[in-house]
Amino acid sequence: MALNKELLNILACPECKGELELLPKEDGLRCPKCEVVYPIKDEIPIMLVDQAVSDKDWTGSKAS
C-alpha cells in the first residue's frame, strides 16, 4: 500500500512549514527549502526534526 496522497497534500515540513516532495522510491519526504529528507518507515512518515537526514547523506530506506 502506497502512502495516502491526501495525507501528502496536508503534510508540511515541521521545521519551515514548507511543502514536501515524495521521493521516487516513496521511502522519504524531501523538504527542498531545508534540504533534508524525513524517512518513511512502514508507510508512516517520521516527521521529527531530529530524525531528518541531510539530502547529501540520504541513502534511502536503509537510513536511520
Rank of each mutant, 00 (worst) to 15 (best):
A63Q: 10
A52G: 02
W58M: 08
I46H: 00
P39A: 06
I40D: 04
K17V: 01
A63I: 06
P14V: 08
P14T: 05
I10L: 12
V53A: 12
L23E: 04
N4D: 15
K62M: 09
N9A: 13
L23Y: 05
P45Q: 10
L11V: 07
P32W: 01
V49S: 14
L22R: 09
I40T: 07
C34A: 14
C31Q: 09
C34K: 09
C31T: 02
C31W: 07
K33S: 12
L48F: 12
E43N: 15
L3G: 00
T59N: 11
E43I: 05
D57A: 15
A52C: 08
N4E: 13
N4C: 11
G60D: 00
E35H: 06
E43W: 02
Q51N: 12
A12H: 10
P24I: 10
L22F: 05
E35P: 02
G18H: 08
K33H: 11
M1Q: 11
K62G: 06
M47W: 04
L7W: 06
G60L: 05
I44K: 12
C16P: 01
E15K: 15
K56H: 12
V49R: 15
P32S: 06
P45S: 10
K33Q: 15
T59L: 13
K33F: 11
E26R: 10
G60A: 03
D55Y: 10
E21S: 08
P14Y: 00
P24G: 05
L8H: 06
L29C: 05
D55W: 12
P45R: 01
Q51D: 10
C34V: 02
E43G: 13
A2M: 11
V49C: 10
L20F: 10
E21G: 00
S64F: 07
D50T: 05
T59K: 15
S54R: 12
K33A: 15
D55Q: 10
I46M: 11
I40M: 04
M47Y: 02
K62C: 03
C34I: 00
D27L: 07
G18D: 11
I40N: 05
C34Y: 06
K41H: 13
P45E: 03
I40Q: 07
I40P: 09
G18P: 04
L3Y: 08
D57I: 02
M1C: 07
I40C: 04
C34W: 01
Y38A: 01
P24M: 04
A63W: 03
D55A: 11
K33L: 14
A2N: 13
R30F: 08
